[in-house]
């Protein structure tokens, strides 16, 4: 990374790129098919670190899917290296929004907890569960979504996320009164707009090693449930999830027989810089 510095988010604000607002969550706009059954899914991703080749197809697939601005990423792959020549090891850790469930009992991830507009939106129902949309909110199926038409631009969610996966989006302008000059926030949405239509997220679709697997943890026949069973991922969250000490209960699980996650030092002081996806 060395001398590469991306404009701070405050700088980004000043650029004031003329862009339009977007609603990241699209649920309300979809045709009325596949209506909720009694049990909601719990969407999750499993990343098999044995199969990630560091190709970055995921990163670019996401750039294209959303037209993500330069300087921003919704998913990245980090190199993790150790040992000395000729025993050098190099591994790859794909990263994205963990779509956290939040600490047990609380059941609200830090980004939602800190959002003053977390319940400012519509009253909704998914299956039997009721919920409200917000600037940042958790859908009953586990997706952490955003509605930028409700965002006031306080950026507390950016600070709250211990993983640094949120950033100011120069392509999204806020729309609430007196906020029109401010920019919105971007992050991975688990491709809710694709999943709601019955197709996997863009990064999963294209993953060269099929290292990324997506599905419903509540459905024992789903590929993620099968991997959970085989590798006991939900039973070993201290090993299979990132920064377990943060008690966020991530729903991105890693198959990691070589203990790479434990050796990946996420730079928490500069967590947004850490979420820049350059290739080394």
């Amino acid at each position: 990374m060395s001398n590469k510095e991306i404009k701070s988010r405050r700088d980004a604000l000043k650029t004031g790129a003329a862009v339009v607002a977007t609603v990241v969550a699209t649920a309300g706009l979809l045709p009325k098919n596949a209506l909720a059954a009694s049990d909601n899914p719990r969407w999750a991703m499993v990343v098999d670190l044995r199969k990630c080749t560091g190709c970055r197809a995921c990163t670019i697939a996401c750039k294209a899917e959303y037209g993500v601005a330069l300087g921003r990423f919704n998913t990245v792959v980090k190199n993790v290296e150790f040992n000395k020549f000729p025993d050098t090891e190099k591994h790859f850790v794909p990263r994205l929004c963990n779509n956290c469930a939040g600490e047990q009992g609380k059941d609200v991830p830090p980004c939602v907890e800190k959002c003053p507009q977390a319940k400012a939106g519509k009253r909704m129902k998914l299956g039997k569960e009721r919920y409200r949309t917000g600037a940042t909110y958790k859908r009953p199926d586990g997706m952490i979504l955003m509605d930028m038409s409700l965002c006031i631009g306080c950026y507390k969610c950016i600070d709250a996320c211990p993983y640094g996966v949120r950033s100011i989006d120069p392509f999204v302008k806020l729309t609430l009164p007196n906020r029109e000059k401010d920019l919105g926030v971007g992050k991975c949405t688990f491709c809710a707009h694709r999943v709601d239509q019955g197709i996997v997220p863009a990064c999963v679709n294209t993953c060269e090693g099929r290292a990324r697997v997506f599905g419903d943890l509540n459905n024992p026949d789903s590929p993620v449930a099968k991997l959970d069973k085989e590798f006991n991922l939900t039973g070993t969250k201290n090993k299979s999830t990132m920064l377990p000490g943060e008690k966020t209960d991530p729903h991105v699980f890693y198959i990691d027989p070589d203990n790479i996650l434990a050796r990946y030092k996420l730079n928490k002081e500069n967590k947004q810089q850490e979420f820049i996806g350059t290739f080394e």
Binding site: R123, D196, N219
Partner: peptide, 10 residues
């Protein structure tokens, strides 16, 4: 309103 998100064994 009802969210249209997929639910069940899809």
């Amino acid at each position: 309103s009802e969210s249209q998100a997929l639910a069940g064994s899809i």
